[in-house]
Computed example of a mutant assay.
Amino acid sequence: MSYMEENLEKYADPEMYDHLHEGYEVDLKTILKWAKQDGPIVELACGTGRLTIPMAQKGFRMIKMDIK
């Protein structure tokens, strides 16, 4: 197994990842504090949308990108 594959292993099961990080919003509060609504926000490595979805619900125009 390559380093890249090994590093991505924790993301192989999106439902488990979401379960393990459920309720974690420390980074979301900081991002919302600094985000501006004057253009779209690109979230790289968005996964299942832990940050993208709540930001879109608050009216931000979001562009999400991930490897799969």
Rank of each mutant, 00 (worst) to 15 (best):
G23Q: 15
K10D: 01
R50A: 05
Y24G: 04
G49I: 03
M65V: 12
A35G: 08
A56C: 08
I53C: 01
V42T: 02
G23K: 09
A35N: 01
G49L: 13
K58L: 08
R50E: 00
D38H: 15
L44Y: 02
T52Q: 09
A35V: 01
T48N: 03
G23W: 15
L8S: 07
E25N: 02
P14E: 04
P40A: 15
E5D: 15
A12I: 02
D18E: 15
K29S: 05
M16Y: 10
L32M: 04
M1L: 06
R50D: 00
L28R: 11
M65Y: 00
K36C: 11
M62G: 02
E15N: 08
L20Y: 13
H19K: 12
M62V: 04
R50N: 04
D18Y: 09
I41Q: 04
G49Q: 13
G49W: 08
K36D: 14
L44G: 04
G47W: 00
L51D: 03
D27E: 07
G39Y: 05
I67G: 07
I41S: 02
V26P: 00
Q37A: 10
E9P: 08
I63V: 10
K58V: 02
L44I: 03
N7G: 01
D18F: 12
I63Q: 14
M4D: 14
G59E: 15
K29L: 13
E15K: 05
Y11L: 09
P14I: 05
E22S: 04
M1E: 13
E22R: 13
H21G: 00
E5Q: 10
Y24F: 15
N7F: 10
E6H: 10
R61V: 13
H21K: 13
H21D: 07
G59C: 11
G59N: 08
I53M: 12
G23V: 05
D18C: 04
E15P: 01
A35D: 05
G47K: 01
G59F: 05
P14R: 10
P40K: 01
L32I: 11
H19R: 12
A12K: 12
Y24E: 08
I53L: 07
A56M: 14
Y11F: 15
V26Y: 13
G23C: 07
I31Q: 12
E9K: 09
P14Q: 06
K68F: 13
K68H: 08
Q37Y: 09
Y17N: 01
N7Y: 06
D18W: 05
L28Y: 14
L32Q: 14
